[in-house]
Design a protein around this nucleic acid. Structure first.
Lengths: 277, 277
DNA sequence: GGCAGCGATACCCGGCCGGTATGGATACCG
DNA sequence: CGGTATCCATACCGGCCGGGTATCGCTGCC
């Protein structure tokens, strides 16, 4: 199985439409049809059911889609890491969610910079899906928040745990009540909705947001309420309040990296990070 | 980067000889040279340094070798799992080291067979490197022993922990002393040597063994001594003794599976396994 | 029933992969 | 010190395959 075949199959499986997939791949539709047919023939497995009107995935196709995405990510990662290893000046790329864990990050970078043998550290600030750059090799290490960021297939060390608070306008009806429970906020029409890992939004009435800047703007306008880790209390804007949500899941901040990583710099960074837990 | 290029590069990187690598790949040497040169050109990175007499890996080459092996394993796994998903009768393949953990395994398989919705379970008995079939998709789940089996990149649940004993002839000079320390046995000329993951043996004087049958035969002949998990006491042959080694690392038996696994059958098996810890 | 959308088929062309032959460099040996 | 064996690179050629265009056949839908 060649990566070209996997790229083609993943495109078709995601679009569920040969024409659009071909366009996305920058080739014509007939060679794509043929490539998929060849792949199915070589595997001896039917991956897609085509009624000449609608394309859908078989069970085997679902499996190959998942595996294929992982492989394509690994290939991209391999290329990036190989090039990075050839660069004479070694460096570490740290992925983190913009806005969140700013203090932990600052402390970590300061502490690491004082290490003997510290290398250049680049920051990769993400809006969401902070784990993705780790999987495709754009980052060497990431700060993630369980249970919101997926960590399967990654090595992790726990840095800390905290509860969550509901952030809202001081004038909000719930602002006076304390403590809150999840049931109090989960039905709010203005509860913020975050994108899923595929970029789509879950159904619901609340505001669809993509990053913390958007979110706080909407909260200040009274158009949104959000449940966030406790650190969000720090530097809260005028007119906003944070109310503890006692039964919200605990948020665990972890430092994560791809398995098999053997870089000295990464090991140092992780050691420093876990040192001041 | 195509998997063909990765296969070629991994072959050359492992053989460090274009001729032998080409032979192993079943192609002639010149196309292989060209393919590697093209790969280097496209990556913009020198992967191998060739003096027309000796080939060696650059730092970037080392990285790509490691990543490439993982990718090729993942590709093989994807093919196997896709085919398995197409088979109408689902089944689970469990990898385990032959001879070791026999009781745990028997209990586990019995308990799982009584589960509602249990699927057929196949056993894949390995001599060593039990984790490999997990990485290349020949197995869905494995029983591993930390710290001897690598578990990076796998999801694991701990099943149990035990100490280790030194197994030797009853006539051995150390047989009377109890307890032993690692220092007592680590210098023994007849201490058994196990293969590393690449199949080569570490240097040393002891007997080179590949599986437990060989090992016990050599121990009975007085040609070997081995440090093994405590379960090895059970059913020890006549004339052999097991002496506790107090400072040997604790052996943890874990059940491990590839991350992202979403099969119902696997989840059931893991639940059953952790249930009777 | 006509039409639009979509995948499959037919056929052609060019590039690339793989082959053989050979050159050039280096270590080894007499 | 020259000969030779070894090993990788280069040169060149042929066939296969991936990609293109044109077109057909099927299926919902107005």
């Amino acid at each position: 199985m060649e990566t070209r075949e996997l790229r083609y199959f993943v495109a078709v499986a995601e679009e569920l439409n040969f024409g659009r997939a071909a366009e996305r791949l920058g080739i014509a539709q007939p060679p794509l049809s043929r490539a998929i047919a060849q792949l199915e023939h070589r595997l001896g497995v039917e991956l897609l059911t085509r009624t000449s009107r609608r394309v859908s995935l078989t069970d085997a196709g679902e499996v190959l889609l998942e595996e294929g995405r992982a492989i394509l990510g690994a290939v991209a990662a391999a290329e990036r890491r190989t090039r990075a290893a050839a660069a004479d000046r070694p460096s570490l790329v740290v992925a983190a969610k913009a806005g969140s864990s700013g203090e932990v990050l600052a402390k970590l970078l300061d502490a690491y910079a004082n290490e003997p043998g510290a290398v250049t550290v680049e920051l990769l600030l993400c809006e969401s899906n902070t784990h993705v750059p780790l999987l495709d090799g754009r980052a060497d290490v990431a700060l993630l928040h369980e249970p919101y960021d997926p960590t399967t297939g990654l090595d992790v060390e726990v840095l800390g745990t905290e509860g969550q608070v509901a952030v809202m306008q001081a004038a909000h009806p719930l602002a006076g009540r304390s403590p809150l429970r999840m049931a109090d906020v989960s039905d709010l029409p203005e509860l913020a909705r975050w994108p899923r890992s595929d970029g789509t939004y879950p159904d619901g009435a609340g505001a669809a947001v993509r990053n913390l800047t958007q979110l706080f703007q909407l909260i200040e306008l009274g158009r949104a309420v959000a449940v966030l880790p406790e650190v969000a209390r720090n530097g809260l804007a005028e007119g906003l309040v944070a109310v503890p949500v006692v039964d919200a899941p605990q948020v665990t901040t972890v430092i994560a990296w791809p398995p098999h990583s053997r870089s000295r710099a990464l090991a140092d960074l992780v050691r420093v990070a876990t040192g001041f837990s």
